[in-house]
Every structure is written in C-alpha cells, then in structure tokens.
Amino acid sequence: MNNSQRPTQLPSVSTISAKELVEWRNQHPDVTIIDVRSPAEFESAHIHGSYNVPLDSLAEHSTVLADRIGPRAVLVCQSGHRATQAQQRLAAAGLNTATVLTGGVPAFETAGGTVVRGAQRWGIERQVRFTAGSLILISLLLALIWPWSQVVAFGVSAGLIIAALTDSCLMGRVLSSMPWNKVKASPSTKEMIESIPIASSRL
C-alpha cells in the first residue's frame, strides 16, 4: 500500500501490528509509545523513543495520563497482555483511542523497528513461568519423601488459575519487587508521566 492509500490517523481499532507501528512511526513522529513493563524490563530492551510507565503506576494515575497523551498512543509490553490491561484502565479514564501493540517489543524488533538495549534481564512473564514451574517440580519431587510437599504444587497451580480468571498476577508483582528487578536510578511516577510530552491535541 503506498502513502496515498494510507489513512491519515491511527486506525480506530484496539490493536496494531508491529509492522504497522513501524510504518506509522515513519509517517507520524507524534505517535506516543507507552511501555507498561517494569523499569528493569524497560532498561533491558525498549522501543526507541518510548516512555516507561509501569502498569501499577498507570493504574493509579490513569486519569492524569489520559489527559496528557493524544489519540495516537500505543501501549506496549512484552507480549501484549499487560498493555491490554493498561488500555482498559485508560478507557475507563476517558481515553478510548489507545492502541495495543500485538507481540510487544520482540515483535517490533523482528519487524525492523529500532530497539534500545541495556542490562539484560528476563521479562517478568518469563520469570513467573520459570518460578511457577520450578516450585511445582520441586514440590512433586519432594513428595517422594514428604507427601505434604504436594500442597505447594496445588497452591501454585491454584494461584495460576486465579491469575488467569482475575487477569492479575500476584507472583508477577512480587517478582517485580525483587532486587534483581530494580534499576539503580528509577524515576518517580510523577517524573515518568511528566517526561511524556503533552500531545498537541491536548494543548
């Protein structure tokens, strides 16, 4: 599709593909990309020019953020799951035009987009899978000598089911607070939000 055939604003849909976002950024430098992952994940790899507002912070300040960013806002995480939650929060605050990047940062890089890399860490979602799997495996192995250890496996399994039903993850929040998921100079939520330029449509 050539430039004359492309629309003049972001499509009124809830998601956008990585390839589309790469094209949109080339056409519209005012596209605001909000990365809702943890500061540590953002430091490890993020889309060039994106702004980091972790999901928990966005949830607490969704009204302020909704008033600041314009219609060309794209929400990003590792896979799209947390970005979807952020989209719902902003919609509740009155911003219905925020779009979710499908496939997250990895898909954007695969599509040829520029990604900035820093200290490498596993993403929170990957850490959750590893931790949950390890706890279940260890508890089942220990059950050979101590049957009560199976309770841990049942507990972790139940936690994962609850996380899916409620669309939240306690283990993910706990892991986010661990020392290895902290950055040396993490800005405050106020500083994060104020670093995002006010969209011209909001001026």
Rank of each mutant, 00 (worst) to 15 (best):
A93F: 09
I193R: 03
V76D: 04
V152I: 15
Q120P: 04
V31C: 06
R68G: 02
Q5R: 13
Q88K: 13
N52M: 04
I33E: 01
E109G: 07
V31N: 00
L101N: 11
I198W: 01
V53D: 01
L55P: 09
P147F: 06
P147E: 03
A92E: 11
L140K: 14
H61V: 03
L55M: 04
N2M: 07
A45R: 07
A91C: 13
P147M: 04
E60Q: 06
A119Q: 14
V105H: 00
S4T: 14
L165P: 05
L21A: 08
W122H: 13
N181F: 10
Q5M: 11
R121M: 04
L101F: 13
V105P: 04
N2L: 08
L160I: 14
Q87A: 11
G113I: 09
V53S: 00
Q27I: 12
I34N: 03
I145L: 15
Q78Y: 15
M1G: 15
V76K: 06
Q88L: 12
K190H: 15
K184L: 07
K184C: 02
A92K: 11
I34G: 03
V100R: 00
I161G: 09
P29V: 08
L175F: 12
E43W: 09
T15V: 02
S38H: 13
Q87R: 07
M171N: 02
I124D: 11
A185M: 13
T166H: 13
V174C: 04
V64H: 07
A185E: 14
D35H: 05
P187Y: 02
P187E: 03
S134E: 14
S149C: 10
E60A: 10
L142I: 08
P179N: 14
L135S: 08
H28C: 12
E194L: 03
